[in-house]
C-alpha cells in the first residue's frame, strides 16, 4: 500500500519547489561578458571556446577573419626565427661536411609548409579555393599548404597512384583476354571499379568505343 501525505494549504498558499537564485542570471551574464572581453584581448573570441555563444553569420565571418589574422601574425613571428634557425643549421652542416658546400644563395632558400588554415565554413572556403585556382589567383602550393599539406608530397603521391592505376589497367586487359581496351580498363580503375559510375573517358567522348 502506498503512503500519501496531505498538506493543508491556507489561503493564498501554494506548493513551490525551493530554488536558489544565487548566482543570479545577471551575475552569470556579467561573468560571460568579462570572459568575452578577456578572450577578445587574448585574440581568441569566446565563441570559439563556447560555440553556443556564436552569433549571426556576419559576426562569425568577422570573427574568422580576425582569428586568421592573429594566426598569421604569430606564424610570421615564428617564421623569422625558424628561417634563421634552418639557415644556421645548414651552414653548420656544410662546415662539418654533412652537406655539400654551395656558394650561391640556395643555402638560405628555405620556407615552411603551414598548418591547415583556420576555417569555420569549410564548404565556402573550398569553393573560394577552386575559384582561385580557376582564375589563377591561387597556386596549387597555396591551396595544398592551406590544408596543411606539402604540394611536393601530394604530387609525389599522385605520381605513385597514377603508375599504380596504369599497372592495374594493364592487368585488367590481360585478364579479359583483350575484350577490354586499355582505355576502358583505365576508366574502370580510375572509377575504382564502380560499374555505376560514369567512366571518366566518356566525359570527353560522346560515343565511347564500347558503345559504338
Amino acid at each position: 500500500m502506498e503512503d500519501y501525505t496531505f498538506f493543508k494549504a491556507g489561503s493564498g498558499e501554494k506548493i513551490e519547489v525551493p530554488t536558489s537564485l544565487n548566482p543570479s542570471t545577471n551575475e552569470v551574464e556579467w561573468l560571460k561578458l568579462i570572459g568575452e572581453e578577456c578572450c577578445s584581448a587574448m585574440g581568441w573570441p569566446i565563441g570559439l571556446l563556447h560555440p553556443s555563444m556564436l552569433k549571426g553569420s556576419v559576426q562569425v565571418r568577422m570573427m574568422e577573419a580576425q582569428v586568421k589574422e592573429q594566426i598569421r601574425v604569430r606564424q610570421k613571428t615564428l617564421r623569422n626565427f625558424a628561417k634563421a634557425f634552418v639557415a644556421m643549421n645548414i651552414s653548420r652542416a656544410m662546415d662539418a661536411g654533412r652537406l655539400p658546400r654551395i656558394t650561391n644563395s640556395d643555402w638560405r632558400a628555405f620556407d615552411f609548409t603551414m598548418p591547415a588554415e583556420f576555417v569555420i565554413d569549410s564548404y565556402y572556403s573550398d569553393q573560394m579555393k577552386q575559384t582561385g585556382l580557376r582564375t589563377g589567383t591561387r597556386t596549387i602550393q597555396d591551396v595544398i599548404s592551406s590544408e596543411g599539406g606539402n604540394w611536393e608530397d601530394v604530387f609525389a603521391q599522385r605520381d605513385i597512384e597514377n603508375k599504380r592505376k596504369l599497372d592495374l589497367a594493364a592487368g585488367l586487359v590481360a585478364y579479359s583476354s583483350g575484350s577490354l581496351t586499355f582505355e576502358r580498363a583505365l576508366d574502370l580503375v580510375a572509377s575504382y571499379g564502380n560499374q555505376n559510375a560514369a567512366p571518366l573517358q566518356s566525359q570527353f567522348n560522346d560515343t565511347p568505343e564500347e558503345t559504338k
Partner: peptide, 12 residues
Amino acid sequence: VCATGWHPIFCG
C-alpha cells in the same frame, strides 16, 4: 599556428 605543418621546403 604551429602544432602541425612547418615542414621545411626548398625554394632554391
